[in-house]
Nucleic acid binder design. Structure first.
Lengths: 211, 211
DNA sequence: CCTACCGATCGGTAGG
DNA sequence: CCTACCGATCGGTAGG
């Protein structure tokens, strides 16, 4: 039974995690310090700490908060479109829109986290980030595979290769948009996605994209 | 006049910076701590500190060390090839080889640094990283432009767009190679570079690549 | 290049 | 959720 106190506690926790995910997208999950996070929220360090019990557990909870935001802002809108090349295109567009709208102030949370933990030793946080990134790549690959089954993408190409190349453009848009403070890079990625998809599309697929 | 002591000092400094660049490629330039670096080299923290005077100056010197390594391992080998599509291809191949050979243990130093400082506020270190990354993109663009002038790349395409798309594949190779511990991602980038170049190449350009 | 420090901040704990 | 702590580590300094 949720009492008034547990409800209030859950709300506080949500607020903490929203701020934590925002900070981590800029300064990294290791750069996220409990003291600074508490100060930003106007609460005591140990009061905040009590919600999680360890920094590692705070990091893991922050990853889940970021994942929920990513699912809501990128995956769900795209998965509401019909499967096929339309959906593959929608996934790419949803990602670029999510970068443009600055859903996280530091750019894509998972791009930042991936880069940060890329070469580091194994840890629960790293494992979870690898899982999330793998799932996103699988989402792109499945969308490509769906388009191929529907005859909208040519049969002589590889879905994993296509997903890799699309993801390259999306990630570059994320990095260069923030590094150079220049939205041109998002347009370059849009252009890359469109030419890549139209090159691999069948005539049936092409008619789906160019409405 | 270099005395025995200044020579020895310079050598120590070089050793410090080599270790610093290696560590920073894994843990980031902010994750690089003076104490840990000193411990790794078996010297005192303040002895090491005396070489630089501040952490910021150590970070800037580390960036220059990394840049020298990058120029030696990626740029110079590629710029020794004849200008044109051959050189553009050589730049991409040199980058992928540099990732494969693990010139930095944490993957491309500048990819890591770019990701780390991407959304952070302005600082001398960030400025220098932006400059280096911009120079690399210009190197790719110039090579593409050179190939176009020589009639090896089609005239109806954009060199900046091509550089952006090639760089997307190269960066993805860097991230996914380390994140998933899987060399397949380097092969995917190789494949992407080759198909991209052959698609934009003229017949004259094509004969240069497929020797 | 060293020893011996400094104040600030880190993650985490005791006790309420 | 708080105050009041803990040992460890941070960047940096004094003095040699």
């Amino acid at each position: 039974m949720p009492t008034r106190n547990t409800i209030k506690g859950a709300r506080t926790r949500e607020g903490i995690l929203r701020a934590a995910a925002d900070i981590a997208s800029v300064d990294g999950l290791d750069g996220l310090s409990i003291g600074r996070l508490a100060a930003e929220l106007g609460m005591s360090k140990s009061g905040l700490f009590a919600h999680f019990g360890s920094k590692e557990s705070l990091q893991l909870a922050t990853i889940e908060e970021a994942r929920n935001r990513y699912v809501k802002e990128v995956i769900e809108p795209a998965l509401s479109t019909p499967s096929g090349i339309t959906r593959l295109y929608a996934l790419c567009e949803a990602f670029l829109s999510y970068i443009e709208r600055e859903v996280f102030p530091g750019g894509c949370f998972f791009a930042s986290a991936m880069a940060e933990f890329d070469a580091k030793g194994p840890s629960p946080a790293r494992d979870r980030i690898v899982e999330c990134q793998e799932q996103w790549m699988i989402t792109l690959e499945r969308a490509a595979e769906g388009a191929r089954t529907k005859g909208e993408l040519r049969d002589d190409r590889d879905s994993q290769q296509l997903a890799f190349e699309l993801e390259g453009a999306l990630l570059s848009a994320n990095w260069y948009f923030h590094l150079f403070h220049d939205t041109t890079n998002i347009e370059r990625a849009r252009h890359a996605v469109r030419t890549q998809l139209s090159r691999e599309a069948t005539p049936a697929g092409l008619s789906q994209i160019e409405i």
